[in-house]
Amino acid sequence: MYRLLIVDDSKLIRQKIERECDQNLFHIVGSAIDGSQALSLFFQQAIDVVTMDLTMPELDGIECIESLVRLDPDVKILVISALNDVATGMEALEKGAMGFVTKPFSGSELQSALCELVEDELQVRL
Protein backbone atom coordinates (compact mmCIF):
# COMPACT_ATOMS: atom_id res chain seq x y z
CA MET A 1 0.00 0.00 0.00
CA TYR A 2 1.21 3.47 -0.87
CA ARG A 3 0.58 6.23 1.67
CA LEU A 4 -1.25 9.02 -0.15
CA LEU A 5 -1.60 12.70 0.77
CA ILE A 6 -4.26 14.75 -1.06
CA VAL A 7 -3.61 18.49 -1.46
CA ASP A 8 -6.39 20.68 -2.86
CA ASP A 9 -8.24 23.74 -1.60
CA SER A 10 -11.57 22.30 -2.76
CA LYS A 11 -13.30 19.80 -0.48
CA LEU A 12 -15.32 18.58 -3.48
CA ILE A 13 -12.11 17.63 -5.28
CA ARG A 14 -10.43 16.15 -2.20
CA GLN A 15 -13.42 13.89 -1.66
CA LYS A 16 -13.56 12.94 -5.33
CA ILE A 17 -9.91 11.89 -5.27
CA GLU A 18 -10.52 9.96 -2.06
CA ARG A 19 -13.48 8.12 -3.61
CA GLU A 20 -11.89 7.43 -6.97
CA CYS A 21 -8.38 6.29 -6.09
CA ASP A 22 -7.73 2.56 -5.90
CA GLN A 23 -8.19 1.67 -2.22
CA ASN A 24 -6.28 -1.60 -2.72
CA LEU A 25 -3.21 0.30 -3.79
CA PHE A 26 -3.41 3.58 -1.88
CA HIS A 27 -4.03 4.31 1.78
CA ILE A 28 -5.04 7.94 2.32
CA VAL A 29 -3.08 9.25 5.28
CA GLY A 30 -4.20 12.86 5.10
CA SER A 31 -5.55 15.76 3.13
CA ALA A 32 -4.47 19.39 3.08
CA ILE A 33 -6.11 22.58 1.83
CA ASP A 34 -2.89 24.32 0.81
CA GLY A 35 0.85 23.92 0.53
CA SER A 36 1.62 24.98 4.10
CA GLN A 37 -0.71 22.38 5.57
CA ALA A 38 0.74 19.78 3.20
CA LEU A 39 4.25 20.51 4.46
CA SER A 40 3.12 20.18 8.10
CA LEU A 41 1.54 16.80 7.38
CA PHE A 42 4.63 15.72 5.46
CA PHE A 43 6.77 16.38 8.55
CA GLN A 44 4.40 14.41 10.78
CA GLN A 45 4.12 11.15 8.84
CA ALA A 46 5.61 8.97 6.14
CA ILE A 47 4.08 9.72 2.72
CA ASP A 48 4.86 7.99 -0.58
CA VAL A 49 2.51 9.71 -3.03
CA VAL A 50 0.99 13.21 -3.18
CA THR A 51 -1.77 14.58 -5.41
CA MET A 52 -1.13 18.31 -5.71
CA ASP A 53 -3.36 21.19 -6.81
CA LEU A 54 -1.48 24.27 -8.08
CA THR A 55 -3.70 27.30 -7.43
CA MET A 56 -4.09 27.46 -3.66
CA PRO A 57 -3.97 30.11 -0.95
CA GLU A 58 -0.86 30.38 1.24
CA LEU A 59 1.84 28.21 -0.33
CA ASP A 60 0.94 27.36 -3.94
CA GLY A 61 1.46 23.99 -5.59
CA ILE A 62 4.68 24.73 -7.48
CA GLU A 63 6.45 26.01 -4.36
CA CYS A 64 5.12 23.08 -2.36
CA ILE A 65 6.39 20.54 -4.92
CA GLU A 66 9.83 22.12 -4.69
CA SER A 67 9.83 21.89 -0.87
CA LEU A 68 8.52 18.32 -0.75
CA VAL A 69 11.09 17.05 -3.25
CA ARG A 70 13.84 18.79 -1.29
CA LEU A 71 12.67 16.99 1.85
CA ASP A 72 12.23 13.63 0.16
CA PRO A 73 13.55 13.18 -3.39
CA ASP A 74 11.70 9.84 -3.65
CA VAL A 75 8.22 11.25 -3.09
CA LYS A 76 5.95 10.77 -6.11
CA ILE A 77 3.83 13.81 -6.94
CA LEU A 78 0.87 13.89 -9.30
CA VAL A 79 -0.34 17.40 -10.16
CA ILE A 80 -4.12 17.75 -10.53
CA SER A 81 -4.88 21.23 -11.77
CA ALA A 82 -7.10 23.31 -14.05
CA LEU A 83 -4.00 25.13 -15.33
CA ASN A 84 -3.56 23.24 -18.57
CA ASP A 85 -0.96 25.28 -20.43
CA VAL A 86 2.23 23.55 -21.51
CA ALA A 87 4.55 25.96 -19.65
CA THR A 88 2.91 25.24 -16.29
CA GLY A 89 3.05 21.50 -16.90
CA MET A 90 6.73 21.73 -17.77
CA GLU A 91 7.48 23.86 -14.71
CA ALA A 92 5.76 21.34 -12.40
CA LEU A 93 7.75 18.49 -13.94
CA GLU A 94 11.00 20.43 -13.67
CA LYS A 95 10.34 21.03 -9.96
CA GLY A 96 9.92 17.31 -9.41
CA ALA A 97 6.33 16.30 -10.16
CA MET A 98 6.04 13.00 -12.03
CA GLY A 99 2.62 13.32 -13.66
CA PHE A 100 -0.12 15.79 -14.54
CA VAL A 101 -3.90 15.41 -14.68
CA THR A 102 -6.01 18.29 -15.93
CA LYS A 103 -9.24 19.27 -14.20
CA PRO A 104 -11.97 18.33 -14.86
CA PHE A 105 -11.01 14.66 -14.73
CA SER A 106 -12.72 11.29 -14.65
CA GLY A 107 -12.17 8.52 -12.13
CA SER A 108 -10.44 6.36 -14.70
CA GLU A 109 -8.06 9.19 -15.69
CA LEU A 110 -7.10 9.62 -12.05
CA GLN A 111 -6.65 5.90 -11.47
CA SER A 112 -4.45 5.38 -14.51
CA ALA A 113 -2.31 8.44 -13.68
CA LEU A 114 -1.79 7.24 -10.10
CA CYS A 115 -0.99 3.71 -11.28
CA GLU A 116 1.51 5.04 -13.82
CA LEU A 117 3.20 6.92 -11.00
CA VAL A 118 3.92 3.77 -9.01
CA GLU A 119 4.04 1.29 -11.93
CA ASP A 120 7.80 0.87 -12.12
CA GLU A 121 8.07 0.29 -8.41
CA LEU A 122 5.15 -2.15 -8.50
CA GLN A 123 6.91 -4.26 -11.12
CA VAL A 124 10.01 -4.42 -8.95
CA ARG A 125 7.90 -5.45 -5.94
CA LEU A 126 6.10 -8.19 -7.92
Binding site: S10, A82, L83, N84
Partner: peptide
Amino acid sequence: EVANTMSGNARR
Protein backbone atom coordinates in the same frame (compact mmCIF):
# COMPACT_ATOMS: atom_id res chain seq x y z
CA GLU B 1 -14.16 25.15 -8.12
CA VAL B 2 -16.19 25.47 -11.34
CA ALA B 3 -15.05 29.10 -11.75
CA ASN B 4 -11.46 28.03 -11.10
CA THR B 5 -11.60 25.15 -13.58
CA MET B 6 -13.26 27.09 -16.39
CA SER B 7 -10.84 30.01 -16.12
CA GLY B 8 -7.82 27.77 -15.54
CA ASN B 9 -8.59 25.74 -18.66
CA ALA B 10 -8.47 28.95 -20.72
CA ARG B 11 -4.70 29.02 -20.16
CA ARG B 12 -4.16 26.32 -22.76
